[in-house]
Structures are given as C-alpha cells and as structure tokens.
Design a protein around this nucleic acid. Structure first.
Lengths: 128, 128
DNA sequence: CCTTGACCTTCCAGTAACTGGAAACCCTAT
DNA sequence: ATAGGGTTTCCAGTTACTGGAAGGTCAAGG
C-alpha cells in the first residue's frame, strides 16, 4: 500500500503521514523505488494516531499512548493519567472560552450594528 | 515612559510590546539613546490590544479593531461583524472541546487505573 | 572615575503540528 | 514518446509570541 491509499483509509493527508514518519511516530518500509510501503501495523498505528489527535491529545501524548499501547506490561494507570491530565486541560480551555463567549455575546448584543460609529464593543475594549 | 513601566501598566510583557511594534500595531517614539518612549496614546492602544487578545481576537482582528477604533467615521456594523465572526468560531471551538471532553470523560471513568494492562482508553483508540 | 545592577537594544532560534509549493523521479497507458 | 498521476525530498510559512545571547545605557555607591 502506498501513501495515497493509506491516506484514504485513515483520513490523514499524505503530508501528515510523512510528518509522522519524520518525527518518528511510524516507520514504514520502503520499496525498491523509494516509495513508502505501509503494512497493516502502520495503518493501524496511523488510525490510532488519528483518533488520539481527534480527541485533542498532543503529538507527545500520542507518542506516549502509542508506546503504552505497544507495551504489553503497561499499567492502565499510566494511560489514565495521561488522559486525565489532558481532560483537565480541555476543561480549563472550555471554561476560558465560555468566559470569552459570555462577554462577547453581551457586547455583540449591545452593539447596534448600524452605520453610526457609536459602539459598545469598542467602548469596552478601550475602557472608556 | 520606558517599556518596563508600560509593561507593568498594561500587563503585557516587554517582549510582546516589542513584537507588537515589529508587526506595526504600535509606533512608539524613540529617545536619543534608542529607548522606546511610550506616550499615553501608545499605552492606551496597548491596553486595548491586551483586552482584545484576552477576548481571543486574533492579531489581525486586533489590527482591524484598532483601525476601526481610530476611525471616527466607522460603522458599528463593521465592529459587530468582526466580533460576531469571532464569537461563532469560539462557539464552534467550545462545541468541539465539549465533544472531546465527553468522550474522554467516559473513557477515563471506564478505566480502572490500576497496574493491569487492560485499558478501555487504548481499546477505544485502537478500535479493537 | 569606576563598578555594579537593572534597564534597554537588536537579532536569532524555537515553539505545535502541520501545510503549500517547487523540482524531480516513477509508473502506467496510449 | 508522452501525458497523467502518483511519489520523493526540501524549504518556507503559519500564530503569537518566548527565551537567550551579546552588547549599549543609566543611576547610585564607593
């Protein structure tokens, strides 16, 4: 399987797959012509990575998770710790964004949005 | 006022202030010794920028907002459009993060977190 | 006058995770 | 032989800073 096929299967762009190889997440074999050859294990890893990234795990977390996945002697506590840490960061981020949203929402609703210059949004930013 | 004083006043690090000058958001004057000299208008702009950034506006949005702020003939509709667009992106982001959080939350709760290898988190990522 | 410490300056590199584009090679079909 | 689509590598750019190095400036103290 060449990179294009694997891209279709995993939903990851070829560029991303090459990048993952570059940073050592996968090590596909090479054909005589220099093309990457993907085996099932590579495809499997890429799918794993795609899902971990979709859950917002950083590349470094993905590296850790992949290593744990391949380690038969892992402790589930190690996996849980990574996930929990990440979950905490997501919750923090959500809280920040909600605070922004609430403020912005107020401001947007307070703004007439007409062709006069008077604007509560700018007023707030300038703390006039 | 030198950059350190302004940093304290605005809460923005000196590095950030220099960066804002570099990308043309502000144009502080210079003293004979080469030091930046900040007038009230600069300080005011920096405070404006700090608040806009705290609401999550991109630098380019900040540039636009600052231009609108200085344009006496602006239409509040232009400001509102920028804010509304941004608000939409924040809401989208919140929704994404909430979806991640929900999934992660389930997975984390399903994981024993002990020293056995069996782990629902990895199972999910691997779609076993 | 000299030194010390706290400023300030510029410039360069690095961050996260790709993405776009260029130049060139490979393979298959006509 | 050529056209098309795939693939390769390498380089640059993205966002918004941040860290660090090398060196100039300034005010206070001895």
């Amino acid at each position: 399987m060449n990179i294009g096929d694997i891209a279709k299967r995993t939903g990851l762009p070829p560029k991303t797959i090459r990048y993952y190889e570059e940073i050592g997440l996968i090590r596909p074999a090479r054909d005589a012509n220099g093309y990457r050859v993907f085996r099932d294990s590579d495809t499997h890893k890429l799918a794993f990575l795609g899902r971990a990234r979709a859950l917002g795990f950083s590349i470094e977390d993905c590296r850790t998770l992949l290593a744990l996945y391949e380690d038969e002697a892992r402790a589930s506590a190690d996996v849980k710790r990574v996930a929990q840490e990440h979950l905490g960061q997501i919750e923090e981020k959500i809280a920040q964004l909600q605070a922004m949203r609430d403020t912005l929402n107020d401001l947007v609703h307070a703004c007439a949005g007409d062709n006069r210059p008077d604007c509560p949004i700018l007023k707030d930013l300038a703390r006039e």
